[in-house]
Amino acid sequence: MSGNTDSLKLGDFEFDSRLFVGTGKFESGQLFEKSVSASGSQMVTVAMKRANPNAQDDSILDFIDSETIKILPNTSGVRDAKEAIFVARMAREALQTNWLKLEIHPDPKYLMPDPIATLEATKELVRDGFIILPYCHADPVLCKKLEDAGAAAVMPLGSPIGSNQGLQTKEFLRIIIEQSSIPVVVDAGIGAPSQAAEAMEMGASAVLVNTAIAVSSDPVAMGDAFGKAVKAGRMAYLAGMGKVSKKATATSPLTSFLS
């Protein structure tokens, strides 16, 4: 997908855009299509729980140009590893893709990912030939274990899903990014373009955004804003961010007498 020297390599794909978009919560397929187009995103994630093999219209898939945009099925709604594995295989068959955003949340209230089940399912699905992008807590050890299990990327959360609270897990994301040998995609909780830029400035490989775009009064303009923010954040990261210091540099050094 790319002639860009800074493309994101993920599995056997290269992405020019480092913004991934979720398909939920939009008021219509048309609005979703326009907002993805404005964002420049090249990968969108689709919930298999809403997939209906019998319906012949109303498909969000009708609004995704699969020539230019990669479809990433997700397992949203499953409660354990077995259900996730079942849905993964269904997605592979139905959408003809071995890519999967693995999300397992036994807690229906805050949709917190289950770290143990996620690791188990990742191991099993990688063995089964899937390209797995697991949604997980911003837990550095878990992320390394997912990497060891063969995940193609890790997708730690910035804050609870749909909360728009931004990077509440910032310090842990920093450690994850520092330690990871696979792409780190910050997923969940990003509520403003500035927060997406912040994640990119920290060195995240990409971000995934849904609610903030879908429930905006103008999802198309918001998609555009996120696209630009992700680019700006990435540029700043590559340019080299200045060191943040809590202290001013002393104008009257106390040790100058030594020189």
Binding site: V46, A47, N52, P53, D58, S59, L61, E83, F86, M90
Partner: peptide, 24 residues
Amino acid sequence: CLAKTLPKDTVLLDKADSKILAVS
């Protein structure tokens, strides 16, 4: 239901159906 019981390689959807798979 099926996640608990299905053998690993069971075909879950008719391939012909997968082309008209819809996500609403």
